[in-house]
Design a protein around this nucleic acid. Sequence first.
DNA 1: GTGGCTCAGTGGCTCATCCACTGAACCAGC
DNA 2: GCTGGTTCAGTGGATGAGCCACTGAGCCAC
Lengths: 228, 228
Amino acid sequence: MEALPRETVVDVLEGRLREDILAGRHPAGSYLPPERRLADGYGVTRTTLKHAFGRLVQAGLLETRHGVGTRVRDFARLGGADLLPMLVRHSPDWFGEIFEVRRDVGALIAERAAARATRAQQGELRELLDAVRTAESADAVQLADVEVHRALARATGNRVYVLLTNTLFNAYLPVRAALVGPFTEPAAAHARLAPVVAAVEAGDGDAARRAAEAYLTATERIMLDGPA
Amino acid sequence: MEALPRETVVDVLEGRLREDILAGRHPAGSYLPPERRLADGYGVTRTTLKHAFGRLVQAGLLETRHGVGTRVRDFARLGGADLLPMLVRHSPDWFGEIFEVRRDVGALIAERAAARATRAQQGELRELLDAVRTAESADAVQLADVEVHRALARATGNRVYVLLTNTLFNAYLPVRAALVGPFTEPAAAHARLAPVVAAVEAGDGDAARRAAEAYLTATERIMLDGPA
DNA sequence: GTGGCTCAGTGGCTCATCCACTGAACCAGC
DNA sequence: GCTGGTTCAGTGGATGAGCCACTGAGCCAC
């Protein structure tokens, strides 16, 4: 049971500004109006606006220069993967590309995990896989699936793969209710995922890569198109 | 010629807080002192502290709950790739892992680019490769190299690969002066990179993957160990 | 044991003000 | 005519005080 999301004024304002930017209403290179004017226009204080700006600056959508103003960055060219949640919220046509990368990188991770997993990590994978089968709601199955993928990333012995896995999940987990298709039946979800874990346990990199690709392709299809 | 970096109070404070967190002085799950106390302790206003907090919250190091307090997140487990610049700054032993992922993902990107690059993209790659040879400082060569990689990512036709490429570069470009070894001779840098672009132009995915791996392995070795 | 209320402490936000920086305009000197 | 110095208006960075909303713990009545 998760706490209900609560929106602050800064959240609302950030969302508004973000949508305006992503919708192209402020082209890359253009300056936004001065903070004082913008805050007045939105009916908030400048401090509140600066907090929203701070988020967009950190996300790479804006850059501010002391004494000059706040400019829209060429985020399409220069932006990082942390932008993905924002981009997905703006336009769902990002899903196809995210899933392609998820498939490619996920297969790579499974292959590395097969080569490097410790006995303890193999055991953890088994347990987390079991948790998929015993989870009691579709949402819980989905989140249990995520934990298996995190464990796979950890089993690569490369922490950057863990962070990358989280980043890809962060792209769509906020809207995961719309992508819950593959997780409505715990037994089916478990059966789809089990070959990946088995190949990693067997230390078979090729099999792990193939199994991960098959798994991610199948779940992606269900998520994008609906059940077969 | 780049503007000199300028540090604000928020920058300094964010860095201090970040170091304390990454150094484990506030373990995951623990609450930081209340904002008012912390601001007093650091000799800044609460507004300034809140800005620094905002950055760390967005980076996934902290989470704040209205009325409750600000807690350190289990960022090692849940954090995303946008944490990489912070992590590198804290501890250079991340470089090895970043470069491994850079190699794996870079090879994948080159393979996809070979399959999908348009004629216009191939032309752009050629031009950007030329810019590596004609750049006038090691720093400029290095940044020109980055532009080639961005163009490769664009040539995959998958925008998420562009963002991912930026994220990996964002991890170490702020400290790129320490990694400038492969870029001190424009002609040598160009010669190392040319086979990647050639394979992409030839539409040969296997060759592109192998060339990218060789390129990234060679440059990584120079960056980590020094010239051969 | 449960629900309602109070309270102290927390974060969220407002407001007003001052300081530091920037770019443009203007002027003096060469 | 060009360069360097100064001024000024407008920008963002930061301060400080105050009020409001939320939270969790404790207490009390039923």
